[in-house]
Computed example of a mutant assay.
Amino acid sequence: MASIQAIFQYPSSSTTLSIPSYISAKPTITCLSFSSSSFSISSSLSSSSITDRAEIRIGLPSKGRMASETLELLKDCQLSVRQVNPRQYVAEIPQLSNLEVWFQRPKDIVRKLLSGDLDLGIMGLDTLSEFGQGDEDLILVHDALDYGDCHLSIAIPKYGIFENINSLRELAQMPQWTKEKPLRVATSFNYLGPKFMKEKGFEHVTFSTADGALEAAPAMGIADAIVDLVSSGTTLRENNLKEIEGGIILESQAVLVASKKSLIQREGVLDTTHEILERLEAHLRAVGQFTVTANMRGGSAEEVADRILSQPSLSGLQGPTVSPVFCKRDGKVTSDYYAIVICVPKRALYKSVQQLRAIGGSGVLISPLTYIFDEETPRWRDILLTLGL
């Protein structure tokens, strides 16, 4: 059964809610207890100085689907995590010397990045936003690791007074919400939830933190609405809840984060971060891409290239690679054929092969790509700019 732990309320003459943007300073929330007396809860997360430890530490999720998908991604990047004892919370990545892997709860990864106990970490953007609260010491190294997709959203019942409410605006304008009887929202996101509702102009709202399945809170009479993570939406539908237009607070997926202090002050962290980022980007860019190789008769490389570029699916990443294919005929080396190499996304693979054959391509070979390394990643340039390097 869900239990109420705390109530966050606004507005009131004795209750204030200061919620800045994600990038600004951290908020101070004055809360209302079950009695009329008030007390304060500070959400500030103080960062201690960087300790003198020599090893570099990265925090990874310890349990659940995100944990397994994180390990799988690192393995695909040739960064397999070696854990001698599955009961231990520390491991290593042999390819990265002086790096310790620490398995932690995602929210604890954020907190330990801020305290200086970790240098790098992987978690969902929702967790980073909720517990990091825009702290400038948290540097977003990679914002789209392509797993852990979900969104933080407000949901209301499909029945009763909410039956014909289909948008956030309609919810805010319901006459039922007054100072004496505010809209009650159950959530575990006690920073993002109030911040969103405040920005959207809700005047009479209380927020409660409930243990257990939030989806049950409206049916139990504990809350009128919930703010929770949604993946497929199946759980909401099975509990007669619905999302509403304008009610999505945050789109989230797995991200890689670094401590700014560690990047600047701790030896080796910047280089290790660069290598991890390059491996991640090279792998993620290659996902779903295929190398297509074929032979094509032509009078010159330019003529063959012109034929290829006349087909919209054959341009590749930066254009086709065209090379002469040499053979010996009547004692002389000739090059009547040219080898074509292009990179094609999986969704356009068959169409590309058809177009290639239509303009004279033969002997078509297809192989999946593992990595695509750029000259330099824009994300790395952005990090150096942020650090002033």
Rank of each mutant, 00 (worst) to 15 (best):
L120Q: 10
I58Y: 05
S188V: 09
V353W: 05
I359T: 09
S153G: 00
D224R: 00
E281G: 04
G363P: 03
F189Q: 04
N295I: 07
L79P: 03
G148L: 05
A155V: 01
S12Q: 11
L384Q: 01
S48E: 04
L229Q: 15
A223H: 15
H151I: 04
D119T: 11
P94V: 03
A67C: 13
S37H: 04
I372S: 00
T187H: 10
A348I: 01
M1T: 13
L214P: 00
D146C: 15
I366A: 04
E92P: 00
H151C: 15
V81W: 06
E92Q: 06
S335W: 01
T51V: 05
Q289H: 10
F326R: 02
E136P: 00
T293L: 03
S352Q: 03
A210P: 00
P106C: 08
K242D: 05
S188K: 13
F162E: 08
S310K: 09
G132E: 13
E55G: 01
Q253P: 00
E203V: 05
G298S: 07
T187C: 10
I7Y: 02
P11D: 11
S62D: 09
F326C: 05
K195V: 05
M174F: 14
A358G: 07
D149R: 15
F103P: 01
I56G: 06
A258S: 03
G247W: 11
L349R: 01
S44Y: 12
G59N: 12
R82A: 07
Q5N: 09
R65H: 04
R266M: 06
R82V: 09
G299D: 13
N295R: 11
S43C: 05
R279M: 01
S46V: 07
D382F: 02
D211I: 04
L284S: 12
L45R: 14
I340S: 08
E376D: 15
G134Y: 03
L365S: 13
L125E: 08
Y89M: 09
I165A: 02
V269L: 02
E303L: 08
S33Q: 15
L120V: 11
G299A: 15
T235L: 13
F34Q: 13
L256Y: 02
K242C: 03
T28I: 02
G132S: 10
S188L: 08
S3H: 08
L309R: 04
R379C: 12
E72C: 06
G59S: 09
G201R: 10
L145Q: 06
A282P: 06
P182H: 14
V81L: 04
K195G: 04
T51L: 10
G59F: 08
L73M: 13
R357Q: 09
E375L: 15
S46H: 15
S231N: 04
S232W: 06
F207N: 04
F39A: 07
L138E: 01
S44M: 14
A54E: 08
E69S: 14
G132H: 12
I109F: 08
S97V: 03
V322N: 00
R307H: 01
I154A: 06
S167R: 09
T234M: 12
K261E: 07
Y159K: 10
